[in-house]
């Protein structure tokens, strides 16, 4: 009996917490007159499917494409640079490694909004702002790379050292042991961490807003911000935009939720 009371309580708390999400989908489905009804309705009386319309009129394809491009670039760059580094940090133990690890943990916490000023000036001086999406990829990679390294390191730590040594004795080179033994065994952790930094970069805002001047190169977050404008009242359209944008993120996340959580907590607390 007590268990079911707890279940009902739990459901109620989850429902309250997720209400903003419900409200987003609900508003997206309501008609533009219904959203301004007072008192508001909690179930659409006249369901509207204006997803395609918003997609076209707000040119979402282009924004989403730019976001995807940036997120993909960041993920490729961060995994390429970070995986090997995470592996070394999990294997070698000495003072220099400790210092490197500490420095990486420190860089993990630098806020984008504070780093963007020097990065903007620096990129401007070396002419990188001429290709602004690449500039955002470079800046965002520097932001997520430390997190990627810390989380991946936790995965590599779990692979027993003897497996690598057995491969060396079996006649493998260091490179061979890394690619044939370590990478396959750390694959799950690497994948989950990559998805995590992909999702984070897919929702990046500060660097895109500050480094990209041209509207046609902008990302989905900036597109949403422009849509909201100072005197926005097409809330129906805005919530439709938001729903289109976050639904894929939520689906991917829900599929990988358990793994992301275990990877994340391992990295944050160890």
């Amino acid at each position: 009996m007590k268990r079911y009371v707890l279940l009902i309580l739990g459901l109620a708390m989850t429902a309250i917490y997720l209400f903003p999400l419900y409200w987003m989908y609900l508003t997206a489905l309501k008609s533009s007159t219904e959203i301004f009804q007072y008192p508001p309705t909690f179930w659409p009386s006249d369901t509207q499917w204006n997803f395609l319309e918003v997609w076209k009129s707000r040119d979402m394809g282009r924004y989403i494409w730019n976001s995807l491009l940036i997120a993909t670039g960041v993920t490729i760059l961060a995994t390429t640079l970070g995986t090997g580094c995470a592996y070394v940090l999990s294997r070698v133990r000495n003072v220099w490694i400790e210092i490197a690890l500490f420095a990486i943990l420190m860089m993990q916490v630098l806020p984008s909004s504070l780093m963007v000023t020097p990065i903007f000036v620096m990129f401007n001086q070396i002419g990188l702002l001429a290709s602004p999406r690449i500039a955002v990829i470079l800046a965002q990679t520097a932001k997520v790379l430390p997190l990627y390294i810390v989380l991946c390191r936790a995965t590599f730590v779990q692979v027993p050292r003897e497996l690598e040594e057995a491969a060396l004795v079996d006649g493998s080179s260091r490179i061979g042991a890394f690619f044939h033994i370590m990478l396959p065994l750390a694959r799950n952790g690497i994948l989950v961490t990559s998805v995590l930094i992909f999702l984070q970069s897919f929702g990046e805002y500060v660097y895109a807003r500050s480094l990209i001047a041209k509207n046609e190169l902008q990302t989905a977050t900036v597109g949403l911000q422009t849509f909201m404008g100072p005197n926005a009242n097409d809330w129906n359209g805005i919530m439709t935009y938001a729903a289109i944008y976050v639904t894929p993120i939520l689906i991917v996340f829900m599929l990988l939720q358990r793994r992301i959580v275990s990877g994340l907590t391992a990295g944050a607390l160890k």
Binding site: L163, A167, V169
Partner: peptide, 13 residues
Amino acid sequence: VAMVFQSYALYPH
């Protein structure tokens, strides 16, 4: 040289 490890170190995959 070949080595047999205490933990066996069999490649799990």
